[in-house]
Amino acid sequence: MQEKNSRILHSMSVSIAGVELKNPVMTASGTFGSGEEFSEFVDLSDLGAVVTKGVANVPWPGNPVPRVVETASGMLNAIGLQNPGIDLFIKRDIPFLKQYDTKIIVNVCGHSIRDYCEVAERLSDQPVDLLEINVSCPNVKEGGIAFGQNPYALEEITREVKKYAAQPVIMKLSPNVTDITEMAKAARDGGADALSLINTLTGMKIDIYRKQFVLANRTGGLSGPAIRPVALRMVYQAAHAVDLPVIGMGGIASWEDAVEFLLAGACAVSVGTANFTDPAVTRKIISGIGTYMEKMNIKDIKDLIGAVGE
């Protein structure tokens, strides 16, 4: 065997439902578009995967503005899943991403089970690696979170989408539930190949001088470091409740944060709101994890996954 350079002695590759990622760092849906705008700051080929913004069977206009507002160590958004629809997405966004040596994970949204299945079916012959089913968006009136807050509905939509999907299916879970392990088990029972969590926590902000809601949608999804401890706890619980790969996210802004999620049991992590604070943050997180592994003499990143308390 050829002697390897000592700097690449550690392996950062991870596997999600049979899909091999070069490293565990991906983008969180909705914060990164389809990568084009960020490609000026990050070589997308450095990323484990790009997770696209949610796409539906037809174009969605999203919510009225204001759609975003900053909060303490966080932000609220109520974009409302504006998206160009699956036709333009297949024509434009997938070919764009195929230029890069990264995995493509398409986030799928819908108002009804039929909508989700239609998008999954349309993607079945596309060069896409994984589907992430968004049953946890708090900002749309029909669909979205409605499927993610009831274990029976979650199990049913998982089972239906699996009938149409050619790629492995990740169910993206909402933190706005009483018991995350119940939802993780429901997704597993429906046939999910992996889980991702957490989506945003439903929140609100009021302008006290105008006596008005700041967001036109009144409520929005809270993201950013403010939610990180909650996310970490839920990732730990879900990873220990089911025997499925878990992708952890929620306020990850540094490599230290990412390592915490891996130790809690996530086999990969998504970086979301932190992209708004530094568009090159994903690259820094990847190199930071590598340096940490060298320093800690960890040869394989898989040895980190779920290693807390060992």
């Binding site: 578009g33 960020f38 999203g62 507002v69 958004n77 974009i79 708004f276």
Partner: peptide, 13 residues
């Protein structure tokens, strides 16, 4: 009101 400032997040339409 904006978030990313570069056209990705669709906050400021």
């Amino acid at each position: 009101r904006m978030a990313c400032g570069i056209g990705a997040c669709l906050g400021c339409v």
